[in-house]
Design a protein around this nucleic acid. Structure first.
Lengths: 228, 228
DNA sequence: TGACGATGTCACGAGCTTGTAACATTTGCT
DNA sequence: AGCAAATGTTACAAGCTCGTGACATCGTCA
């Protein structure tokens, strides 16, 4: 994984507990005792996910979530809310505000990790560290290694991300625009044809293993990763 | 999906949020801050769906919807209205004016996407990603693949769109003009006989699977996709 | 600083798509 | 049968898409 996770929780003991667990799971915890502090942190660096206590002193969790959703820069950040009571009302309101999941205290570290992983996978499967293995190709985000039919494949950073995205979204055509948004990042402005060039570089790197046929062109539409 | 969706919303933050989510879902957002601006956009290019805030400065959402419904060119465009209060009165008036659905703020991206999909499925099934399977033919918009009796079928972009439209509107004769409007697009001017040529190409591509008989000629009227 | 890898852009050419016209065939009707 | 309209079929030129190699730039690291 190796995600940066912002923990917004006013109870020090719980905050500490969560932070410890996140570290154990290989994440990078950022801590905030309240929403204001959290906003400051977010202003400086975008976390990959936010664990948000619903009951906070001062600015409430709901309000904080709203603000994240209101700002273009932070809109896409997944939010998991922590709620003390298993109150259905809270849950509903939270999901409406845009939380991706919620978890009721008390919770086990195992459950927390599972939900984090699930949310990361849902929001951006290519963000997780899960190894992807398809049609003879094996891509391991953790070690940043790719092998085709057992042979190592050398890829540049962009080609690696591109392949990772394609392998986590197979059997589906992606337009150049979509690939630019997903692999290069939104807000980046780059020529569409640049995608072609990186597809070319990716294929070239895969050629020695004859796996370049997995990356397919769909004329007039875009590209597709397919094992057929 | 890949629908062009016009968002008419005066609140910049909400407009931005919606546009972002639409993009994530694979749609192409068009934005307007008010009804006048929206009318201009519609004059240039027809969107596939309109998300319309009910409370707008200047020309109201209701009035805008009326105008869309009054013009033959825009009458068929599905409208989903966004309403701040869960006011029954608004809802009723909206549905009477011809809105296809309504959604009450605040709403989750998930809910918005679900409603968009539902409306598109009802009004313009060829805009969704749903796989179509009929009479031995299988067409999957997501992977952009067609198979007939299990065998892959190679189609050019236009033939693909044509077949997709026919398969989502079966047992019904479409005139050449209708096909040009629906498959080629609104403002395109092309000879009617061109449709014949593409029908021919489509049939030829289907011949190897003996499924070309599904595309039928209705003399003096147009073409029809039928499993009988 | 200099070398090197990574990246984005461009230009060129091969090959595919597409709209049209021209010709062939079928259909419906008298 | 004979005719006219509608449709099927083919060929082709123009335009567009995509693959590909070349190149300039930028940041990094020794």
């Amino acid at each position: 994984m190796a995600a940066t996770i912002l923990v917004v929780e006013d109870e020090p003991a719980i905050q500490e507990l969560i932070a410890y667990n996140l570290k154990q799971a290989g994440h990078q915890p950022l801590r905030a005792d309240n929403a204001e502090q959290a906003l400051h942190l977010v202003a400086n660096a975008l976390p990959d996910l936010v664990l948000l206590d619903w009951m906070l002193p001062g600015l409430s969790g709901i309000e904080f979530a709203r603000r994240l959703r209101a700002d273009k820069r932070t809109r896409a950040i997944p939010i998991i809310m922590l709620t003390a009571r298993s109150d259905e009302q809270d849950k509903l309101q939270g999901l409406e505000t845009g939380a991706d999941d919620y978890i009721t205290k008390p919770f086990s570290p195992r459950e927390l990790n599972a939900r984090i992983k699930a949310v990361l996978r849902r929001r951006a499967p290519e963000m997780t560290d899960d190894m992807v293995q398809l049609g003879g190709l094996k891509l391991d985000p953790a070690s940043h290694r790719v092998t085709g039919n057992g042979e190592p494949v050398e890829l540049g950073p962009t080609e690696f991300r591109l392949l990772h995205f394609l392998m986590t979204h197979t059997e589906r055509v992606h337009s150049r625009t979509q690939l630019l948004d997903q692999v290069w990042g939104d807000h980046v402005f780059v020529e569409e044809r640049t995608v072609d060039v990186h597809i070319r570089r990716l294929r070239k790197a895969l050629e020695p293993t004859r796996l370049d046929s997995l990356v397919q062109t769909v004329r007039g539409t875009g590209y597709r990763f397919s094992t057929n």
